[in-house]
Structures are given as C-alpha cells and as structure tokens.
C-alpha cells in the first residue's frame, strides 16, 4: 500500500473517519509526511474538522473545508487539488458516506488514476445495510460507480461501539472475510478498539489497525 493517495470510502457510518484518522496517525508515527483530507461533504456532525487541531498537534497536515464553518455546504476547498498531487508525501482521504458522499470524489478520478491510489471500502457488518455479503457488494458497487474509482481493498471494522466484545469482532469479521472472497478484494486490515488489540492479535491473519476514538458524543468528552 505504498501508493501516494489512500482513500477511505464506505457506507454511511461504517467508520471511515475514525479509520482514516487512525491510519494517517500511524503513518505519521512511522515518520512519513502525511496529509489528511476531509472530503466528507455529507456528514453534518462528528467530522475531521472538529478535531483537526488535535491532529495537527500530532504532526498531521489536515485539509478541511474549515473556512466555511459549521454550514452544510458541500464545497470542496482548492487546497485539495494541491494535496492530491501526491508530491508531498502520503495523502489520506476521508470520503463522505455511501454513493452520495462518494460522488464528490468523482471529480478527482482521472487525476488519481495518474498519481496512483488505494481505495479502501470500510465495512462495519453491524450497520443496517451491510450485515450480509449481498449488502456489502451492493454498497461497494454504488460507491465505486459514484466515485468513478476502483475499489482495491476492504477494511474490516466490526464493532458495536462500547458494546464491542471478542464475539462481536469474530462474527462480524467472518462476514467481511466472506465478502472479501466474493468481491475478490483483499482485506487491507482489521480495525480493533485499542484496548482489545492484544486479545485479537493472535486470532487473525489480517494486519490490525488499533483504533482510538477521536470523535466523541458530547457526553463522552
């Protein structure tokens, strides 16, 4: 996955943003120069822009439509074009949810084909429309069509927030593995809540991305 641009796409609420943040931070920790692009024009709350200061402190470059403030205008900032040039290290893109969210990516499609990209479909099999292999397949097709980008891998993100147990991860990951076979897409990594990583580590072949939550409900802050 050494391609300069790494996109995280997926159905609404599949965990794209947390995955993108944690993934970008991991790259940064490895010493890479990383830009995190918030391209989510459909989500209204709990977006990268709410934690961007914290992320900058941790060494990420962050591009968000911040100038627009808290307005639901689906506008793309010009800096994104610059970042996607891929000359300044790695770029991690948090794309909006489902087909409608993926559509804004379409404008960068031919550009990304030139510079090279990875397109990860983040799947949480505990979300309403991706509990089955058929659902995952449908969601993937919709996102690929809307963004005019090819899916290159799945990211398995089975969880029930605070109620996640090892069984929850086991059962959910099984569904994503099945989808991986059916779609012919490898699983880039399995997302696991940081405190459960130790227990899960030995169970699976897939690489594991430990997740720390950044976007919290007000009562969790």
């Amino acid at each position: 996955m050494e391609r300069p641009v790494v996109v995280f796409a997926g159905p609404f609420g599949s965990g794209k943003t947390e995955t993108a943040i944690n993934y970008a931070l991991q790259l940064a920790e490895e010493g890479q120069s990383v830009t995190l692009v918030d391209l989510d024009v459909v989500t209204t709350y709990l977006r990268v822009r709410e934690v961007e200061e914290r992320l900058r402190e941790k060494g990420l470059k962050v591009i968000t439509p911040h100038d627009l403030g808290d307005i639901d205008l689906p506008a793309i900032t010009p800096q994104i074009w610059g970042a996607l040039g891929g000359q300044n290290g790695r770029v991690v893109v948090d794309m909006g949810g489902s087909g409608p969210g993926a559509r804004s990516m379409g404008q960068f499609s031919s550009h990304l084909k030139k510079v090279g990209y990875a397109m990860n479909l983040v799947i949480n099999p505990y979300r309403p429309f991706t509990t089955t292999v058929e659902g995952i397949e449908k969601a993937g097709r919709e996102i690929a069509d809307s963004s005019r980008l090819q899916l290159t891998a799945l990211v398995s993100n089975p969880h029930l927030m605070g109620e996640t147990t090892l069984e929850v991860i086991d059962e959910g990951h099984l569904v994503v593995q099945e989808a991986s076979g059916r779609l012919g897409l490898p699983i880039a990594f399995l997302c696991v809540r940081a405190d459960l990583v130790q227990e899960v580590a030995e169970r699976y072949g897939a690489p594991i991305l430990p997740l720390n939550r950044y976007l919290l409900a007000p009562w969790e802050r």
Partner: peptide, 14 residues
C-alpha cells in the same frame, strides 16, 4: 441481535 445505527436512521426504522 444488536445493530449499530445513527439516530436519524433509528427513528426512521422504528
């Protein structure tokens, strides 16, 4: 079985 939902979706599905 539990499922992970967004508030708006949960209201709609309910």
């Amino acid at each position: 079985a539990k499922i992970l939902m967004k508030g708006n979706e949960a209201i709609a599905e309910a």
